[in-house]
Write a protein that binds this DNA or RNA. Structure first.
Length: 282
DNA sequence: TGAATTGTTATCGT
DNA sequence: AACGATAACAATTC
C-alpha cells in the first residue's frame, strides 16, 4: 500500500523518463478508475506534453503543457510498468495505457482496481483539499502544534486523514507514533509542547528514512524497497519491542490495524514525578 | 473462507 | 451545526 515514501520513490524513478515527453495515446480498460470520466482524461492527455512530474500527498502529478495536470493515485495495488518490462502478473492487471512520443508505452497495472487516474483542470482545488506536506519547510513544530490544538480526534485517525496531513498511511503512522512515544488513542489537543516536538521529528524522521530505503516492500505489490527491515512496530504484533522488550500489541483503531508498544507508548502522558508537589505534601 | 488493505462517502451521535 | 466516530464500499490475493 504505497504511502508517501513509496510514491516519492516511484516519482523519482519515472521523472527522467517522462519529463518533456508527449502523450500520443491513452486508453483505459477500467472506466471507473478515470475521474471525472475516460473521455475527459483522454482528451486532456492525448497530445499534451509533461512539463513536470511531482508528488502531492500520495498522488503522482504530471503537469501538462496545455494546462491542468494528470494525477495518478496508486491506492492499494497500483503500479507502473513499461510494456517491455512487464511481468506476467502486471500483464493480467493492466487498467490503463499511456503511449509516449518516445515510442514506449507505460502500463498502469492495478490488481484491486482501487487506483485512480484523474484529470484536474485546477490543481489549486486539489491542493486545497489536502493537508500540509510533512517534508516541506512550512511544516514546523509550531504549525503542527496549532493544527493539533483545535482537534479532539484520536491521533491515529487524525494522522491518517489526508486533509489534515498529507502522505501518511497505516505503516508510517504507526512507526511515527512509536518513534514519538505517543499512544494512537491519545487525543490531539492533549499533547504538551514536548509531545508535539517529538511527533514532528518522528513524522519527518520515518518518512525520510522510508525514502532513503526506497520505501517499504509489500509482497508482490511493491517489491523494491528495504524499509521493512527497519520497521519497529508495524506488522510485529506479539514480538518483543526492540527498545524495551515488551510484547508489541496489535489493536484496531478506526477499522485499521494498529501496532503499539504498551510500555514505550503509554495511553496517558509519561507519569512525570512532580517532586516539588511530593515534597510539599510530605 | 475470511481477513487485510486505502481513502472517500454516507450516516448517526454529541 | 460542526465535528467526530463508524460502517460500508470498491476488488483481489493468500
Amino acid at each position: 500500500m504505497p504511502e508517501l515514501p513509496e510514491v516519492e520513490t516511484v516519482v523519482r524513478r519515472l521523472r527522467p523518463q517522462l519529463l518533456g515527453r508527449r502523450i500520443v495515446a491513452f486508453e483505459t480498460r477500467w472506466a471507473r478508475n478515470c475521474t471525472p470520466n475516460p473521455q475527459v482524461v483522454r482528451t486532456a492527455a492525448v497530445g499534451a506534453r509533461i512539463t513536470a512530474l511531482t508528488r502531492r500527498a500520495k498522488y503522482i502529478v504530471a503537469a501538462l503543457d496545455r494546462g491542468g495536470a494528470l494525477l495518478v493515485h496508486l491506492r492499494m495495488s497500483g503500479r507502473f510498468a513499461w510494456q517491455d518490462e512487464c511481468t506476467p502478473g502486471d500483464l493480467r492487471h493492466v487498467r490503463a495505457t499511456f503511449e509516449f512520443d518516445s515510442g514506449r508505452t507505460l502500463y498502469f497495472c492495478d490488481a484491486r482496481k482501487f487506483g485512480r487516474v484523474v484529470f484536474a483542470a485546477d490543481m489549486g482545488a486539489v491542493d486545497a483539499a489536502l493537508g500540509i506536506e510533512p517534508l516541506e519547510r512550512s511544516f514546523t513544530p509550531a504549525v503542527l502544534g496549532e493544527l493539533l490544538r483545535d482537534r479532539r480526534r484520536r491521533l491515529k485517525p487524525l494522522l491518517l486523514d489526508q486533509a489534515f496531513i498529507a502522505g501518511l498511511g497505516n505503516i508510517y503512522t504507526d512507526e511515527a507514533l512509536f518513534a514519538a512515544g505517543l499512544h494512537p488513542l491519545r487525543r490531539a489537543d492533549r499533547l504538551d509542547p514536548d509531545d508535539v516536538r517529538r511527533l514532528h521529528a518522528a513524522i519527518r524522521g520515518v518518512l525520510k528514512k522510508g525514502i532513503r530505503h526506497n520505501g517499504t516492500s509489500i509482497d508482490w505489490i511493491y517489491p523494491e524497497g528495504r524499509m521493512q527491515r527497519h520497521l519497529r512496530v508495524y506488522g510485529r504484533g506479539g514480538e518483543p519491542c526492540r527498545r524495551c522488550g515488551a510484547a508489541i500489541q496489535r489493536l484496531r483503531v478506526g477499522q485499521r490495524s494498529t501496532h503499539v508498544c504498551p510500555r514505550c507508548q503509554p495511553r496517558r502522558g509519561p507519569a512525570r514525578i512532580d517532586r516539588t508537589r511530593l515534597a510539599g505534601r510530605a
